[in-house]
Design a binder for these strands. Sequence first.
DNA 1: TATCATTTGTTCGTATGTATC
DNA 2: CGATACATACGAACAAATGAT
Lengths: 254, 254
Amino acid sequence: MADEITRTPIYQQVAARLAQEIANGTYEPGSLLPSETQLMERYSVSRPTARAAIAELRQLGLVESQHGKGTFVRRATEPTVTLDQSITRTGKTFHAYDRQFQETEAPHGTRIHTKGTTSTLLQEPDGVPAFAIDRILTDPTTGLRALHRAVIPFDTAQEIPDLQAHPEAGPTTIYAQLSTAGHTLHWTDDIRARIPTPDDRATLHAPTSSCLLVVHRITHGADRPLMLETLTIDADQAHLTYPHTAARAQPRRA
Amino acid sequence: MADEITRTPIYQQVAARLAQEIANGTYEPGSLLPSETQLMERYSVSRPTARAAIAELRQLGLVESQHGKGTFVRRATEPTVTLDQSITRTGKTFHAYDRQFQETEAPHGTRIHTKGTTSTLLQEPDGVPAFAIDRILTDPTTGLRALHRAVIPFDTAQEIPDLQAHPEAGPTTIYAQLSTAGHTLHWTDDIRARIPTPDDRATLHAPTSSCLLVVHRITHGADRPLMLETLTIDADQAHLTYPHTAARAQPRRA
DNA sequence: TATCATTTGTTCGTATGTATC
DNA sequence: CGATACATACGAACAAATGAT
């Protein structure tokens, strides 16, 4: 690289140049990037440097390497699955995003004590006993997998016999139970994003995923949070939509 | 590493072990991880292997390296800034998240032709002429920076003299203008997450950021999309909240 | 089926640059 | 200035996956 003065590392210069060539179409989506050996010759760098440049592109999500085959330019991949996050009701029946998913495995319930973010979102101290029900949801048309966890404090479950007997019911079923028990429900969705752990990638079957969207949905009664749902999806494959309107401004609760 | 049989790479074994020791508190948040030289001795590996292990932890967001000082265990960092994404109005005045931000620089307007995701979200073909107004917003209490881009098709601007004269007005101002022009407004937020480019990191002043949250907000009139806003923030520092209630289920527009 | 060339993955060794204290 | 630490860069070797011969 003809750059002796600036302090930009060589591998970043190579990466930047390759990124530009991908952007302008020199290397087309789906095509093979030059092999490490070829990059060594072309840019007069060592193999570790060529590898570092490719690693940079991988981290940016521009390319994908396959052992024994080569490094491919990733196709610009817009998230395809749209998750409408609005909740609707018709009479006593609630509808939410879980309607578009199938359960591939039986839900797995455990008893936990809340802590950390869970406690914060439920506005409870740490150590409150609760049911935790984990599910793997699958979108049948695309194969997208999502992780769903529902956390139901014992306090909430105790009010409602049906809920206590079957905490592993689906969220919309629980909404209906809470509603018929006299609660006026509203929700707060809390949306974050984070890097997947290797475990996340395995359970979501998304080995190349780069970011996860995490939606915490808190179901509120009139005075306090009643349950917490957490939905985790691959941000490369799915995105969220929220239809909404302007509400009349009102004095906020403390 | 006493592992001659399994095919797990050594650097991943070291990384997994360090990750566990970080999780169980052997290495406390904020403390210094053993240096590369120490890791070489402790695990009987070479420097590149020790470095690869640390790189793995960096990618998982568990540690942060500082040139000349060492590698530190990152404090478990919950996003601190909460962006309430609801829109409220009092009379003719609209309020949105932009109320909690300051503009550090003057907005930068250009004329563009829509393409790609922008066209899709505006439900227009590619090549439609539009104003694009870019802003850098700053939360004064925390220093969080956010990127904001408003895309206003000429079709929308032409209806409204004030808007055409000053397309660089803030979103809530534009909502008011559209509303007084007779439009009944509603919004659809489209939420995605992606890895930051080096440019993103620079403009957001978030060199260690791992994921970005991207919110596309489409302002709809009665029949068609009127404008598109895009808000980009560091997911490590901020999260979004959407308060909502169950709407009556209604037949959907095609 | 077996072999071989190609390609990426892993691991070692070593040297130099540069930031920090 | 020197010691320590991470960053960059080169060279070399072998392993493992892939596809073609």
